[in-house]
């Protein structure tokens, strides 16, 4: 019985370790790591430190312990100073964050002067792996209605799909059920941009006209067709063009201008 319990605990621990390894490995940035170097460093550094300490001790370089009392007093004083500085740093961080949020609002307002907008903060995000909606802290009390366009300082975010007195649900353009009629800024060809399950940080451009010329890096903006999104709002840039056997099936991947994982402040366009 006891043995069975022990095996169970070991099983749970092993599973936790496997889960952590999976999470870490799957989220690791493979381009920026020289893993072998890191592992060796990690293994060698404690030994290296220990040897250096021993060497210093032996060679009489241990004056650190000579004036224990004065060092203790100095240490206390430094600790005190350190906590004061930490307190100031915290205050500074709060002020900085507040300043940045206000700046973002001002920049947003300046950028989209043609539109009447209501600023809002993202208060909730989707918990599903298959859709991408956000909740913002403005609602009917602030003049928000369904189908209103939501933007950020970088570009298009999505549109309002439902609204309560104080909150509104926004379907982002990376949601798989979102389709935005768009224009390629250089050639002025009209395409449809929609979200894809393949990568929720990218968009897929479909229904590309057969005679359209696509160039990597081209900007994509809203076309104004469809009745929801106003014309000329930046969506993103073409990152990859995928050619298929049948030219009508070709598509392009678009990198959205907005980083949806870090989206905090948005503007809702209240006039069309």
């Amino acid at each position: 019985m006891n043995r069975k319990k022990k095996t169970g605990i070991v099983g749970v621990i092993v599973t936790i370790i496997i889960l952590i390894i999976l999470v870490v490995l799957s989220n690791m940035d493979t381009q920026n790591m020289s893993s072998a170097e890191n592992v060796i460093d990690y293994l060698v550094m404690p030994i290296q430190n220990g040897l250096t300490y021993l060497k210093n001790k032996i060679s009489g370089n241990d004056s650190f312990f000579a004036e224990v009392d004065s060092l203790k007093a100095e240490n206390e004083e430094l600790k005190q100073r350190n906590s004061e500085l930490e307190q100031s740093l915290r205050e500074y961080e709060i002020l900085k964050a507040e300043n940045e949020t206000l700046k973002e609002y001002v920049n947003l307002k300046d950028k989209y002067t043609d539109y009447t907008t209501v600023p809002a903060s993202v208060i909730n995000r989707d918990i599903s792996n298959y859709s991408d909606t956000i909740v913002i802290n403005v609602g009917t009390d602030d003049g928000i209605e369904t189908n209103m366009t939501v933007i950020s300082d970088k570009g298009l975010v999505g549109h309002v799909i439902s609204v309560t007195n104080n909150t509104a649900k926004v379907q982002t353009i990376v949601d798989t059920s979102s389709s935005v009629s768009s224009t390629i800024s250089t050639s002025r060809d009209t395409i449809i941009v929609s979200g894809t399950l393949e990568d929720n940080s990218l968009l897929r451009a479909i229904y590309i006209p057969t005679n359209a010329t696509l160039v990597q890096g081209d900007n994509i903006e809203t076309s104004g067709l469809g009745g929801i999104y106003p014309k000329g709002i930046h969506i993103g840039t073409i990152s990859e063009i995928v050619n298929t056997q049948n030219i009508t099936d070709r598509y392009a991947m678009i990198e959205p201008a907005v980083d949806f994982t870090k989206l905090e402040t948005v503007l809702v366009i209240t006039n069309k």
Binding site: V12, I16, T176, L197
Partner: peptide
């Protein structure tokens, strides 16, 4: 998008299995 959907579903199921084992 069948294949991307299956990929996400399989990973989600594996994740749920691991959590079930941990909290069993």
């Amino acid at each position: 998008e069948i294949l991307p959907f299956i990929k996400i579903l399989v990973i989600e199921i594996i994740y749920n299995i691991l959590i079930s084992i941990i909290i069993y």
